[in-house]
């Protein structure tokens, strides 16, 4: 459904050019939940913004293609973009629940979302809002007439998710949807997302720095490091049979609350500097298995069987 090919996004910063996304390939299929996992500064949010063609003023797309159902997103006209955003692909930004307008009621937000998409009557919006708010388990009668300050953080987050689903997008992008919710609310929201997915069949791209919620919701997981996808495969494959050393290192550094959790190891070394990324494979200075070749040649993202992709020179040897 969504094809990203060779995408490079750079930012002009005082120290030079920061390549947030570097020659990246990624696919999102119909009716799937893709978890995009990476640490801060790896470019995962920039990738999401670029998919909707909203890049900061100091950023620029430096090559590559984004195809949504064979439509070229990066070369869309203003009008086409308006139709594409929110009815094809919608996004819930990081910290989105703080982005509700404090002087607008929830229903006015819903109306506002649809303004630039013609042909929706107020009745239609009302009906659709009711349906969606029920889906996120809010009392729609009460919530629609309220102002944002009358809602708790968890409720606002659910309102924003409902807003994003209003025009029945085919792909919903969620950028760190949990970052400001407390633990009990997080769990509940995760369940709601699973429900939305079941009822609407929409695809989701779930962006997070935390591997744990991905285990519960995703069908496929893409791991990002320093602007590139280093591994992408089915969720079981990623968690039970990870191939890339970075994925392995990340998995062995999450303390779990179940089981004995004895074999934890910290990942050595600091995160890479995105303005001056390491040569070759960006992970090689921290990698336990790095050889000379790793510091010279960037490994391609290659098929490792069963629809899995991995970008590592040595994945065949590392079993």
């Amino acid at each position: 459904m969504l094809k990203v090919r060779g995408l490079t996004v750079g930012f002009r910063v005082p120290r030079g050019i920061l390549k947030a996304v570097d020659n990246l390939d990624l696919d999102v299929y119909e009716n799937e939940v893709l978890g995009l996992v990476g640490e801060s500064g790896c470019g995962k949010s920039v990738l999401a913004h670029t998919i909707l063609k909203v890049v900061d003023p100091n950023g620029f797309v430096d090559g590559g293609q984004i195809l949504f159902e064979d439509k070229d997103v990066l070369n869309m006209s203003h009008d086409e973009l308006r139709k594409y955003r929110w009815s094809d692909v919608s996004i819930v930004f990081q910290g989105a629940f703080n982005s509700l307008n404090p002087v607008m009621k929830v229903f006015e937000h819903m109306v506002d979302t649809t303004v630039s998409h013609e042909g929706r009557t107020k009745e239609w919006i009302k009906e659709r809002s009711n349906e969606l708010l029920q889906m996120v388990r809010l009392d729609s009668g009460a919530v629609l007439g309220r102002y944002p300050h009358e809602l708790s953080g968890g409720m606002k987050q659910r309102v924003v998710a409902a807003m994003a689903m209003l025009l029945k997008p085919k792909l919903l992008i969620l950028d760190e949807p949990f970052s400001a919710l407390d633990m009990l609310t997080q769990k509940f929201f995760l369940k709601i997302l699973i429900d939305i997915r079941k009822q609407t069949g929409a695809s989701m791209m779930f962006i997070t720095h935390d591997l744990a919620p991905v285990a519960e919701i995703a069908d496929r997981v893409a791991v990002m490091y320093c602007g590139v996808i280093v591994e992408a495969s089915g969720v079981n494959e990623i968690f039970y049979n990870p191939k890339h050393p970075y994925t392995r290192a990340l998995l062995s550094s999450i303390p779990s609350v179940v089981g004995e959790a004895e074999d934890l190891r910290p990942v050595p070394g600091p995160l890479p500097d995105p303005v001056n990324p390491p040569s070759g494979c960006a992970f090689h200075p921290r990698c336990l298995y790095a050889t000379d070749a790793c510091s010279k040649l960037r490994p391609p993202l290659e098929n490792s069987g069963g629809g899995s992709l991995v970008a590592c020179h040595r994945w065949r040897e590392l079993r």
């Binding site: 708790s152 769990k187 509940f188 919620p213």
Partner: peptide, 26 residues
């Protein structure tokens, strides 16, 4: 709290019960 914490293991995570709370609001 323990039941709400996501577990980095797909099989365990999907088999866990949903914590029952009388009210979600703190």
């Amino acid at each position: 709290l323990k039941e709400s914490i996501p577990v980095p293991d797909p099989k365990i995570a999907r088999g866990r019960p949903i914590p029952q709370l009388r009210s979600l609001e703190i």
